[in-house]
Structure formats: structure tokens, C-alpha cells
Nucleic acid binder design. Structure first.
Lengths: 231, 231
DNA sequence: CTGCCCGCTGAGACGTCCCTCAGGTGGCGG
DNA sequence: CCGCCACCTGAGGGACGTCTCAGCGGGCAG
């Protein structure tokens, strides 16, 4: 694999082990990798605008990844950025997506997952497609990565919970009956089942509430459920 | 939502319940839906070429979905087709992907999953991007849907198993050491662990073997593992 | 041929996800 | 105000995914 053939990737991380692993893995995928260990170096390199994507760790000594991203965007550099956040919730005031990030990966990440995100980002950039996001106030649903964020905090959902939330979110403000939800989330041939929907609404509320989102899913007695304010 | 505004979808299924559910669900997403209950009708409608995508059940009375797809492609109709297969393995001689299908959904499907596939298909068609597939002989890995097929049979893998296979497949024919696999599949900060890789290689081999693929993953004693024939 | 060591595999512990069931609670009609 | 019924919730069981461990077997070096 010759240099200059593949997409140019800038990897920014302060841990040498992570840098090395990403370097090797991405090169094996035919990408050209440049590494940086700190914020200022990352900024200087990124400003050249010669990269197709940037993998940016948030926890950096001196200048946080958020700040790097912010400055880049302020300078008009539009290179796609994938934020890499530390394992714990990594609460921060600024919403990375609002700052212009193109995706998140949460440590510890499997390389395959990171690679999928990176490829998706490159593909979007190449074709000029927008990211497939649903935004309802501070709630952000990423339909491609199947992740949910509230106020920049990750909301970990099981597949079923995610599917239920997505269905509710696609028509936020309208009431969906339990039967509709059963059909769309659980499948078609569900003969007269139990109160699965109620239980999962409960799970969803609990997890959303833990992330600070209370009252998002409201019950319309005798009709069904509804996400967010009525239309 | 007015007709004519969204993507035109043709839904072909012989079960009225499924047709109705898909019709409602897709319309709620802003798509324009036309339904057909049998193969000949589907063919007639699809030949008009006025659809953006076709959801095609394989089990159809009279004319199977495979045949419908085959005839369409023979007629030069390039409309993207998503095959919907019955719950069991649905073994068939013809490889749907070879016939020109753009994706698979296995019943019973959650609507959210089907929708994600459909949206991806529409996006690809709109931007002219190719599907992200890895093919190694009769083995097909769909990196977008994270599914694996062997000889047109679905190989169900757990996330870990899939990740391991994908990493092996990205450089088929070359030997990957266990340490590399650990780094790329399990993550970076894995201090001196046990024989996880060996165990998962075992799982992978068992599942691949159950699908008819024997000897795909070979052991290079003292070095690591390798997918397929040496280069 | 023989012993060592790498790799394989079965068993099992542990967590998570999915679903059911049986009460409890609170809204709303009468 | 009272009772019914829709909804909620805690408890629990079964299935699955993930990882560890211990013992076995077979390749390969000596």
C-alpha cells in the first residue's frame, strides 16, 4: 500500500499505545495516517486542510479536543471530525455536535466500530450527504450509529429500547397507539401479546431520566404514547 | 404528507397484514407506497421503472421473489431491491446478491431495522455509492448491515464474532497475530489477557462450519490466524 | 521417539436483554 | 366519593453473549 493512495487521516491522541494501534490499523485499511500527541500540534496540522478526516481525542493535555474543534471551525476548516471520548460519561457543557463534530466514538472502542464510523464519515463527506440525525430539543438520535445523546451525555439503550425511542421520535408530538408500536418495533406477527410496550416505556423513561430527561415520554391515557410536546 | 413528495416504494408481499404494516409505517416516514400481493403484479408495476426502491418478499405464490428479481434485471430494470426472506434459513441455489439484490432483511424484522436498511439503500442509490461488501469466495460480509452470508445462507454471528471475522477478512490471506486481533477487536488497553482470541476463533469456526464453510480460518502455529488461502 | 508447549474445547460464572406475571396506583367516569 | 380500569413497576426466569479456567491433544523440536 503506497502513501498518497488512500484517504488522509489525522489521529490526535496523547496515549502512545492508542496512537500506535490506530496508526497500524488504519494503514492496514489503506489509509494514510498522520499522528499528533497534543492540541497545538493537532491544530497546526489540521489547519493545512490536507486531511480527509480527523480522529480527535477529547482528553488532551493543554488544549482539549473540544477547543481544538472549536478553533478549527472558527477558522473555517470544514474537515470532518470524529470525537473520541473517555470511557465515563464525559460530561461537558459544549455539545460536540453543535461545535461541528461529525461523530462520536466512546472508549474503550472496538477498532471495527471506530472503522465503521470513520468509513461512514468519509463516505458522507465524499458524497455530500448529511448525517441522519433526529433532534428533539436537547435529545439527539443518530440513526446511523444507533446512539442517543441528551445534553451531550450518552444515553445507553438496548436495541429494543432504541427501536422504541426511534419510532416515537420519527413522529414526535403525535400519539402512537400501543398496537402501532408493537407492529413497528416488535414485528408484524405478534398475536395478542402482553404489556411489553408498557414495560419498555418504563425502561426508556428510567434511562432517559437518568440522563436528565424527565417527562419526555408522555402517556395519553386510553390512546397511547407521545414523545415531546403536542403539535 | 402529500403524495408525490417522497421516495416511491413498491412493497411486494402476499400477507395482507405485512403489507398493511409496511404501508402505514413507510407512509409515516414520508414515503409513497404502492403495494402488490403477487409476483406477476409486482413485475408489471416494477417494469414501469417509476420506483426508487422495491421491498420484495421471497416467498410469493406463483412467482418467487428470486424470479421476479431475475426477470427485472434481465429487462434492464436497475431499481434497488431489498429482499425479505422468511424466518428460517431459506436455503436457495441462487445467490440473491448475485442476482442483483441490494440488501436482505430477515423475518421477523423490526420495522426500525428494515427502515434503516431501506434508507441506506435509497441513500446509496441517490449518491451512486457502491455497497460496502467484502467477498471471499462464497463468503460475503456486509460491513454496513454487519451481516455475513455463505452460499446465500445467513450466518448469525454475535457482535464480537463478527468483529473478529471482519478484521480477519480485511486482510484475507495474510496472517494476523493474536496480539493484533486483540488490539483491533477488543480494544487498546487490554493488559496481558487470557486465551479469548482462541475461544472466539473456535466459536467462529463452529458457526461457519454449520453454514458449510470449513477450513476457512486456518491456524498458523506460532504466528496467528489467517482467513482463506495464502496470498 | 518423546516431551513440551501451543492451540483447542467443554464447563461454568456472570452480566445483560427480553419478556411475563402479579400486584399496586392513580385518573376518570359515574 | 367510589370503583373500575388503564397504566406502572418490581420480581423473576430464560436465553444469549462474553470471558475465564482447566484439561486434553497434537505438532514439532530435540
Amino acid at each position: 500500500m503506497l502513501a498518497g493512495m488512500g484517504p488522509q487521516i489525522l489521529v490526535v491522541d496523547d496515549e502512545p499505545g492508542v496512537r500506535k494501534a490506530l496508526d497500524r490499523g488504519l494503514r492496514a485499511e489503506g489509509m494514510d495516517v498522520t499522528v499528533a500527541a497534543d492540541g497545538p500540534t493537532a491544530l497546526r496540522l489540521a489547519r493545512t486542510g490536507s486531511f480527509d478526516a480527523i480522529l480527535l481525542d477529547i482528553m488532551l493535555p493543554g488544549l482539549s479536543g473540544y477547543r481544538v474543534l472549536e478553533e478549527l471551525r472558527a477558522d473555517g476548516v470544514a474537515t470532518p471530525v470524529l470525537l473520541v471520548s473517555a470511557k465515563d460519561g464525559e460530561v461537558d457543557q459544549a455539545d460536540g455536535l453543535d461545535l461541528g463534530a461529525d461523530g462520536y466514538v466512546v472508549k474503550p472502542f472496538s477498532f471495527v466500530v471506530l472503522l465503521a464510523q470513520l468509513r461512514a464519515t468519509l463516505r458522507r463527506a465524499a458524497t455530500g450527504t448529511a448525517r441522519d440525525l433526529i433532534r428533539i430539543g436537547p435529545l439527539t438520535i443518530d440513526r446511523e450509529a444507533r446512539t442517543v445523546r441528551y445534553d451531550d451525555a450518552d444515553v445507553p439503550l438496548s436495541p429494543r429500547e432504541y427501536a422504541l425511542l426511534e419510532v416515537l421520535a420519527t413522529r414526535a408530538g403525535t400519539v402512537r397507539t400501543k398496537q402501532e408500536l408493537l407492529n413497528e418495533v416488535w414485528g408484524d406477527e405478534w398475536a395478542a401479546t402482553r404489556n411489553v410496550v408498557e414495560v419498555y416505556i418504563g425502561y426508556l423513561r428510567r434511562k432517559l431520566s437518568a440522563a436528565g430527561a424527565d417527562g419526555l415520554v408522555r402517556t395519553v391515557r386510553g390512546h397511547g404514547y407521545q414523545l415531546g410536546d403536542p403539535l
